[in-house]
Design a protein around this nucleic acid. Structure first.
Lengths: 342, 342
DNA sequence: TCGCTATTTGCAATCGATTGCGTTTCGACT
DNA sequence: AGTCGAAACGCAATCGATTGCAAATAGCGA
């Protein structure tokens, strides 16, 4: 019952020195100015009592909480857990704790959650859910809190971001489809308010143009969200207005929606129409047909962004790279085949 | 630059009263003993300045941090994200933040992470990763920190737990298999050091016995972990030593491993052998064959455990129910069919 | 009009750790 | 032997908010 967590004061009493001495002794930096003998006695007492510094008190005094906020749209979206693990893998050993918040991609919630994080005095924020235009987070950055964005980016504010090589990814799938003989390739694009959506769409357009593909306006359908339902909607619109031989989707969930529609309509994939995704979420290798997609380094993105953030938090004077691009890989599975002979 | 976050002192200066008055005015409870007029002025000043209480300071003083720890084995395991969302859905509106730690089911890491949480003064812990025997967490509980366990439980310590109705789940699948005509039903059991593993195994045994099924020792293979690799290993052992017509796996990942082995060996599922899982993780409806499994209320479990924890944190005097059992449902898909005629 | 009780508000200690500055101690040098 | 200076440690303020207690003000009855 009396087992209250010990404080510096307890150790001080135990060893007969002043709390400030204890504080210094326990800190490797300031510990040098304390007699070795005393340091030893203090350290012994400390772990005899099972001392653990009170992070609240430290944070209050030093204004560093050793916590960072991680903002994501939705942890149940399978691409985010690996990112979290990546982030933790570098942050946890350094003594940082991570507070995760799910924004559900809603601006209002995001603003609110930013405040939640600020109240708690996070030392930095890893933001994997930014909208392209996001005044709130810009305000935070201006307030001096280190922020790095993941997967997406905010334009023109110089906020460091860690992203996947979307352009390369799109180019890879498109090239693959082209090589298989496809010439009428449609695109189910992601939401316009997310940088990934916009970016992949642009990449698709320019790559397609370079390859000399015809691109009628109806070849590109814009999803409002990155989910299966929108994938279905867009695919239906596509099939009703055009006759593509392949559908390049801006992410896997859209592609799953596309596959559903094809199956419902009795259109064979890949026999009649090929489909591709983006992200390589888990289990895509187990569905039928296996989805050809682009694998992104989720864990790596998490790690990289965390490293970057640590650097920004601990060495504010150095300027961080404004953009870190991680490699992607084409993963070929069963959902792509040559188009039917015409 | 000068935009430091405002404190009580700032508001006090602004309104010409003492900080203690401001503190009281902003707290709904103590606010009643302050003149309405003054309260109003203070509140106005507060949100004019954009005041947000400093959680660290509050926590230091009151010993309540409004944070809770969530311990899980691994967030990339798809059953945990919904649990997290469930937890957040009740905690966030109440002003709690959640710190998540991944134990990877390793006792050493778990101990370490418990300390991490304690340093940060969490008000309570939701523990979805307990081992059956877990001295560290028991110590925490004895220290007075509210803890509730999820999905698993610790025996004989009276720690409240929220679990799924494992026994019913096992009974449902087993009954289903029986009804389809299966009589030689094998079980790939979960790890013995996890209560789910042990519990489902017991349920399997007693239900099978009740139904009058023969259960040779080799009918039950024990996995060391809840993953695909162990599912494979156990299934291979099973096939090499017995000839079951159905394999009831203690969870979906084990079942996925089983399906892999069957496919490799050219054994048809469900034609020759039926397979079932447990948990109903996402995408099981998209694989071939769709996996028949037991759906558990992941989100609900999260919610329920959070509600329970809140109650324990805010009303320590009331005794919490020591066990909350949530319903499960049998989900029939393609992986079960009548056994081949002999 | 005086005094007594409520009602409001202020004062100051407190939570636990950090840190600038002051004091003491002790060895070294002239 | 006396002085100087560095090394080692103590003192006390501080971070921002809460809260028991004291003080001041108001309100009320006699």
């Amino acid at each position: 019952m009396k087992k209250q967590t010990p404080t510096l004061r307890d150790i001080a009493r135990e060893t007969g020195v002043h709390v400030s001495t204890v504080s210094r002794a326990l800190n490797p930096v300031t510990g040098t100015s304390i007699t070795d003998d005393v340091v030893k006695r203090i350290k012994e007492a400390a772990d005899r009592l099972g001392y653990r510094p009170n992070r609240l008190a430290v944070g209050l005094r030093t204004n560093r909480t050793m916590t960072v906020g991680l903002m994501i749209p939705d942890i149940t979206n399978t691409i985010f857990p690996p990112i979290l693990r990546g982030v933790e893998s570098v942050l946890e050993p350094l003594g940082y704790a991570v507070i995760i918040v799910n924004t559900d991609s809603m601006a209002a919630r995001e603003h609110q959650l930013v405040d939640v994080l600020r109240e708690r005095g996070v030392d930095g924020i890893i933001h994997a859910a930014v909208l392209r235009d996001d005044p709130k987070i810009i305000e935070v950055v201006r307030g001096g809190t280190p922020v790095v964005t993941v997967n997406r980016r905010i334009e023109g504010e110089g906020i460091p971001s860690v992203v996947n090589d979307d352009a390369l990814g799109v180019r890879l799938v498109l090239g693959h489809l082209y090589d298989e003989g496809h010439r009428r390739i449609a695109h189910v694009a992601g939401p316009a308010n997310l940088s990934t959506g916009q970016f992949r769409r642009k990449a698709f357009k320019s790559a397609a143009t370079e390859m000399g593909l015809k691109l009628p306006a109806k070849a590109i359908q814009q999803a409002k969200r990155f989910d299966e339902a929108e994938g279905r909607r867009c695919t239906e619109a596509l099939l009703d207005s055009w006759n593509p031989t392949a559908i390049l989707c801006a992410n896997d969930r859209l592609a799953l929606g596309a596959l559903e529609v094809l199956e419902e309509r009795g259109i064979e994939c890949p026999g009649e129409i090929s489909v591709t995704g983006f992200n390589d979420m888990p289990f895509l290798d187990r569905i039928r047909p296996g989805l050809t997609t682009v694998r992104i380094e989720q864990f790596g993105v998490g790690q990289e962004s965390a490293r970057l953030l640590v650097r920004m938090m601990t060495e504010p004077e150095t300027t961080a790279p404004s953009e870190t691009i991680l490699p992607v890989r084409l993963i070929k599975r069963g959902s792509v085949a040559p188009p039917p002979a015409e």
